[in-house]
């Protein structure tokens, strides 16, 4: 049945390179998530509290990020901006694309989280003498954080998985590096199998550490 000899040796030889590329994957995903959370918060608050141009800008961002393929967004930051003479490096293309996408998805989660905290709580904490900042940071944010914790974890996993699209814009993260080696040695199946295992391991580690952190954070 198998008229094919598996050659794992070249893969094992380049395993250190693959692992290094995996750390690049993780790096760009984490960075995109941090930026995504910051932008996502701004977008959510803009959509909740502001009117006019800012509201429409935030809405357009969120809807575009959620209703077009992530690959399209990467291409847009890759070739699309090229039309305006703005040529980003592959790293920046992936980072910008992932950030744009994550911010859009997280914004909706944050919006749901903020909406879930009744406004009466803010009024109550204000009448207890808290400043607006205190009301937000001590009453609202902790509750919102609890609600959006799992969506953030999921988005982190998505960010790692999505960063694999970097392969198509010439970014040498885990997938790009794998393709580079695979096309040099023609051991395509072997290389991608090992890469799949690495991705699986990364995802599992993220989920596990998220669960451990949740157990510590949400003890009460």
């Amino acid at each position: 049945m198998f008229d094919y000899n598996f050659h794992w040796r070249p893969v094992m030889k380049s395993l250190p390179d693959l692992l290094e590329a995996a750390s690049l994957t993780l790096q760009v995903a984490v960075l995109a998530m941090v930026l995504g959370i910051v932008f996502g918060l701004c977008l959510a608050l803009a959509r909740l509290h502001l009117r006019g141009t800012v509201y429409w800008f935030a809405t357009a961002w969120v809807e575009l990020a959620r209703n077009t393929p992530a690959l399209f967004q990467l291409f847009f930051f890759g070739f699309g901006l090229g039309a305006f003479g703005l040529h980003l490096s592959p790293y920046l293309i992936v980072l910008a694309g992932l950030t744009f996408n994550c911010a859009g998805y997280l914004a909706e989660n944050f919006r749901g989280g903020f909406k879930a905290v009744p406004e009466t709580q803010i009024r109550a904490s204000r009448s207890l003498g808290m400043t607006p900042w205190q009301a937000y940071s001590r009453v609202v944010i902790p509750q919102v954080f609890r609600i959006v914790y799992h969506p953030i974890t999921n988005q982190m996993v998505w960010a790692v998985l999505m960063s694999s699209l970097g392969m198509l814009v010439g970014f040498r993260e885990l997938s790009g590096e794998t393709q580079f080696f695979a096309s040099r040695t023609f051991r395509i199946f072997e290389y991608f199998a090992v890469t799949a295992v690495i991705y699986y391991a990364i995802v599992k580690v993220i989920l596990l550490s998220s669960r451990l952190m949740a157990a510590r954070l949400f003890r009460y």
Binding site: L161, S164, M167, S175, Q179, F192, A193, Y199, V203
Partner: peptide, 11 residues
């Protein structure tokens, strides 16, 4: 659900 779709396709 834990392996990127693109890797699944190539594999």
């Amino acid at each position: 659900r834990s392996v990127p779709l693109i890797i699944q396709l190539v594999l």
